[in-house]
Design a protein around this nucleic acid. Structure first.
Lengths: 201, 201
DNA sequence: GTATTGATATGACATTTGTCATATTGTTAA
DNA sequence: TTAACAATATGACAAATGTCATATCAATAC
């Protein structure tokens, strides 16, 4: 019997998957959570063989939970289960050495299959995910430009951004100018839209 | 045996729910779709007793599907199943006379229960939904202000907005000024953030 | 039957935003 | 080891943004 822990913040999917996986005759769901903090502490104490983690959860993201698990090194194998084919998520997951990364855009069969493959020692990434990542526009922005863009997203003006990131007002405006020319946008909002569409932030 | 049609664009939830509902001994899932258009035509031809519809789906939203169903008047009862406690969605659903409105923030039991209650002739709305709607900030913006705000969201500048909504540049700027003062924001982006948080757009 | 509000407009003004030229320093790839 | 690039800065300028006062007209609420 393979023990499974499931962390997914959307109740409907959480309960549906818990029931379905429980129906498989070699799998046993030994716990579920709807937030990352609960998930992490329960995974540490219960040491399931497999942890299935959503990324966007309250308190602690699935990626943070995965990182902690891998640091503390319990025997648990991690499968990330998410809606998002976001490059940064994917990269972080790879860095954390997760055992699988599956998109919710797959039927439940695929999840069951992935669980078995991961148990088998394989590392599994959704093929659509890889395609999406490869076909996405490469992010042309530097780290500092991204910092500034994230501040823009909060609705701050140049002076406020300057304070937050410890730069002069003029430098911030230069960065924004550079962001606009690199993205081809002609205003902050347009730049935000482009960056979000391409999943740079 | 009650016949059910399920429209949900996220494969994982779609397949999970289809399997789970199929396990109930009085329910039979006679079809599923991952987009609104397919759902509508199949519901019309198959005439299920219950249609469970997600709102945000490709091609046609669940609310549009519900409206069409109610206009054509097949015997099908409609349950909206969505993540979003958005006031506009809710209002539209009420106007369309759907038979149930359930949030995905509920366990699957609740969905099964709702199906039975709806079959029983009741009209069911998620209690959390009603709470959320009632506690949400009331939208202080006028129709035209909302039109302008939607244009802002696209990243347009005042002149472009003026062209799109057939107003003078100055009027657009007045509207924006009014939006800012009503929302307490001090820039377009901040106003957008506030409006989105409160689900006004 | 008057007061309020929404939709629309203008002009004037201060502030913010975005552009450009130019400069220094440190890191990195060829 | 030089060229390119990232990070940072300044000053000057044009354009866009936001504010305010003021006005008209229609609809609506009291």
């Amino acid at each position: 019997m393979t023990t499974i822990y499931l962390a997914e913040d959307q109740e409907m999917l959480n309960t549906a998957l818990a029931t379905l996986l429980g129906l498989e005759d070699d799998l046993e769901v030994i716990g579920t959570a709807t937030d990352g903090q609960t998930a992490l502490s329960e995974i540490i104490s219960k040491k399931p063989e497999i942890a299935i983690l959503d990324i966007e959860m309250p308190k602690l993201s699935g990626l943070d939970v995965a990182e902690q698990i891998k640091l503390l090194d319990p025997p648990t194998k991690v499968i990330i289960l998410t809606t998002f084919a976001r490059a940064t998520y994917f990269e972080q997951a790879v860095k954390t050495n997760v055992n699988g990364y599956l998109l919710k855009d797959n039927p439940t069969d695929q999840l069951v299959k992935t669980i078995h493959e991961v148990l088998d020692g394989q590392t599994i990434f959704s093929p659509e995910l890889v395609t999406t990542i490869l076909s996405a526009e490469k992010n042309p922005l530097t780290k500092r430009e991204l910092d500034v863009l994230k501040e823009i997203k909060l609705g701050k003006n140049s002076k406020e951004i300057a304070k937050s990131v410890f730069l002069s007002d003029g430098t911030v405006r230069n960065y924004i100018s550079s962001i606009l020319s690199k993205t081809g946008a002609s205003s902050r909002i347009e730049a935000l839209n482009i960056a979000e569409k391409n999943k740079w932030i």
